[in-house]
C-alpha cells in the first residue's frame, strides 16, 4: 500500500478526493487546519494531522507525520485553499496576502518538502481553479490559482522523469459556501455552465484520482479543467 497526502481534506472537495483515493487503494493522510480533519480521517479509515501549510512549522508537521506513518508516499494532492473575494478597488492588502500565501505559498512549500519523499513514479496533483481564467472579485484568488499552474508546469519539468505534476481546475462546485449564495446569483452562475449544473466534489475527485494513477502515466505539466465546459463558454 502507498500513501496519498491530501491537504484541505476535512470537508468538501478535499474530503471527496481523500475518499476517492482510499477507494483506489491508497492509505491517506488528511491535512487541514480545521479540527474536523480528525473526524473525517477516522470516517475514511485514514490518518489526520492539523497543520497550517502557509507556515514552515505546519509543513514540518506534515513531513513528520508522513515519516511517522512508515508507508511509502506516492501521491501529494495540494488542495487546501481559502478565498477573500472583493473587487480589487476594495480589496485590502491582508486579503490579498492571505489568499496568495495559503493557496500559492502553501502549495509551493509543501511540494518542495514532500517531493523528495515521494517514491519514483509518484504524482503531485495541484488544485487550481477555472477562476484563473478571469473572474470578477477574485484578483487575489486568480493570481494564486494561476500561480499554481505556473508551479505545476515548472515543477513538472524540474521533477521529470521521476515524478509527474499536474493540476485540476474546478469550476463552480457545490459546497457549503456555494449553497449559501443568494438563489438568483447562484442561478446566474449555473446558467453559464454548458453542462447545466454545478460540479460535485466527486467530479473533482475523479479527475484527481485519474491524474494520480498509472492510467495517466504519460501526462505531466497539464491542467485538466473540470468545470462543465465553463472554461470556454
Amino acid at each position: 500500500m502507498s500513501l496519498a497526502i491530501v491537504t484541505g481534506a476535512a470537508r468538501g472537495i478535499g474530503q471527496a478526493i481523500a475518499a476517492r483515493l482510499v477507494e483506489s487503494g491508497h492509505a491517506v493522510l488528511l491535512v487541514d487546519l480545521d479540527e474536523r480533519v480528525h473526524h473525517t480521517s477516522t470516517e475514511l479509515g485514514g490518518h489526520g494531522v492539523r497543520a497550517d501549510i502557509s507556515q514552515p512549522a505546519g509543513v514540518e508537521r506534515i513531513v513528520d507525520a508522513v515519516r511517522a506513518l512508515g508507508v511509502e508516499p506516492r501521491v501529494l494532492v495540494n488542495n487546501a485553499g481559502i478565498t477573500r473575494d472583493s473587487l480589487l478597488r476594495n480589496m485590502d492588502e491582508d486579503a490579498f496576502r492571505a489568499v496568495v500565501r495559503v493557496n500559492l505559498g502553501g502549495t509551493y512549500a509543501l511540494t518542495e518538502a514532500i517531493a523528495p519523499l515521494l517514491v519514483d513514479d509518484g504524482a503531485v496533483v495541484n488544485i487550481s481553479s477555472r477562476a484563473q481564467l478571469g473572474n470578477v472579485g477574485q484578483f487575489n484568488y486568480g493570481i494564486a490559482k494561476g500561480g499554481v499552474i505556473g508551479l505545476t508546469r515548472a515543477h513538472a519539468l524540474a521533477l521529470a522523469p521521476r515524478l509527474r505534476v499536474n493540476a485540476v481546475a474546478p469550476g463552480f462546485v457545490e459546497s457549503e459556501m456555494t449553497l449559501a449564495m443568494p438563489t438568483e446569483a447562484r442561478q446566474r452562475v449555473v446558467d453559464a455552465i454548458p453542462l447545466g449544473s454545478p460540479g460535485q466534489p466527486l467530479d473533482i475527485a475523479e479527475a484527481v484520482d485519474w491524474l494520480a494513477s498509472d492510467a495517466a502515466s504519460y501526462v505531466t505539466g497539464q491542467v485538466l479543467y473540470s468545470c462543465g465546459g465553463r472554461s470556454f463558454a
Binding site: 500559492l104 493570481i143 505556473g150 508546469r153 515548472a154
Partner: peptide, 13 residues
C-alpha cells in the same frame, strides 16, 4: 513561473 503565471491570471481578472 508562479509569479509570472499568477500575473497572467491577475491581468485576466
Amino acid at each position: 513561473a508562479a509569479v509570472a503565471v499568477g500575473l497572467v491570471a491577475g491581468g485576466r481578472c
